[in-house]
Design a protein around this nucleic acid. Structure first.
Lengths: 241, 241
DNA sequence: GATTAATAGTGTATTGCACACACAGTTCAT
DNA sequence: ATGAACTGTGTGTGCAATACACTATTAATC
């Protein structure tokens, strides 16, 4: 059983490795870790949509309901999946010399993880981090930017800003990559351009019609553009302090 | 039937009001617009999770499958729902005097819409905007920031950045507001703090333990903080040009 | 005006999901 | 040795998207 403190939010206890002592009944054929591993394998293979209890159970050679012996609910499992898939924060952030480099490295590491497990974007976020690895990512961020002189509140604001930016960017990239985006087919522009002109959308029409606009991919340069804007903005704040 | 050009992405034709000419069979009891309106009502009332074909059909007094006479798939319907719920872009952006004010007004208007229809955050984004209202929002943005002297690419980058920021912020706000976030209960901190200390997370431990940190709400000040950082960053770019 | 082809909505079926509950077999504490 | 606690199975509920066959209706055509 997973009950330790029924008042704790789902997954918290398990994420911190709090497991009840020796049990009485038959030995479980697997561990919570096995279940989490299986879940990650399923998600990596077929995306978040495939992360269902029956699917994971099949992967382990179990019937669907057996999973509820390891985990109280699907929600609880998702918390564990997220923490495990994010993994520990990178050391590299601590080794940087200054806050700006730390933020850059942190954000790139964050994006890398999302490249490895794109489905992490689909795991609902409940609130502030409360599981070990997620807290670890926050910790190395705050640690790395200590030399900026930012207040704790401002540093946290910067972390939220970059977290948010990385997630959005990664989501966009993934969406463009997998499902053929609207503008990929020439028929679409053919359909769209005259109607846009008619409806008074000249600027966007020239952007789409100009040829230089590609919908099918998010270039690295665009990612860097946004990141540099944000860092410049933080820079202005740091300079002011 | 909705087929006009089967090669167009789902919903595109309908979103632009392209409907096939007069039909032969019985008169439809409703219009595509009715279906969309019903969908929005359902979503407003019970969230994106409630937007199912049976649910919308019931709202219209139809059997679930009847909807497929108006719309090719649920996906197509979602495209229409999103464009209609966003609605036309605000006039206010065009009336601003300079790019910075325009971006500020645009972002706040964007956030306002997400306040009205929070489920818009859950509608999957397929790629670059291709429906009339969404294109309109992009248009007024580019129009409003023309005086910045930014290149079209940079202005688009700024639009993406702010769009992304607003979405992330609104999502966070909504999540914190509805489902009780982890740190809301005192037992959680009681559980967490000793373990954080043990695991080498002193900075986050002092943030959570310091008392000033509230998980239950996203203050307006935090929203403005991020927005001002981004605008400062764009400012730096504008100044450089 | 009669015929015919296209169409709207219904009913039924398939498949898949989360989860509740009762049960059979297993293992440890007493 | 006995019984309580436990693991995994089977069965059932209620919901979803969507396919398919069918009936009733209507407009274009003869």
């Amino acid at each position: 059983m997973t009950e330790n403190d029924p008042k704790l939010p789902p997954g918290l206890a398990l994420a911190w490795g709090v497991t009840p002592g020796p049990r009485r009944g038959p030995k479980p054929a697997h561990t919570v870790d096995d279940v989490v591993r299986a879940g990650i394998e399923v998600a990596d293979a077929d995306g978040f949509g495939a992360v269902s209890m029956p699917r994971i159970a099949r992967h382990l050679g179990l019937t669907p309901n057996a999973l509820y012996r390891y985990v109280r609910s699907r929600d609880e499992l998702l918390v564990l999946l997220a923490d495990t898939a994010w993994g520990p924060p990178p050391d590299s952030v601590a080794k940087t010399g200054n806050w700006r480099e730390a933020m850059t490295v942190w954000t790139h590491a964050f994006l890398d993880r999302l490249g490895v497990h794109p489905w992490l974007l689909d795991v609902p976020v409940r609130g502030a981090p409360s599981t070990p690895n997620l807290l670890g990512w926050a910790e190395v961020f705050l640690d790395g930017v200590a030399d900026s002189g930012l207040s704790a509140a401002d540093a946290l604001g910067a972390a939220m800003l970059l977290d948010n930016y990385a997630r959005g960017t990664a989501a966009l990239d993934r969406d463009l990559r997998q499902q053929a985006p609207p503008l990929a087919q020439p028929e679409v522009l053919e359909f769209l351009l005259p109607r846009m002109a008619e409806r008074g959308l000249p600027v966007m029409a020239s952007v789409y019609g100009g040829g230089g606009y590609d919908d099918a991919e998010l270039p690295d340069a665009d990612v860097e553009f946004g990141l540099n804007r944000i860092l410049d903005g933080i820079q202005a704040l740091v300079d002011r302090t």
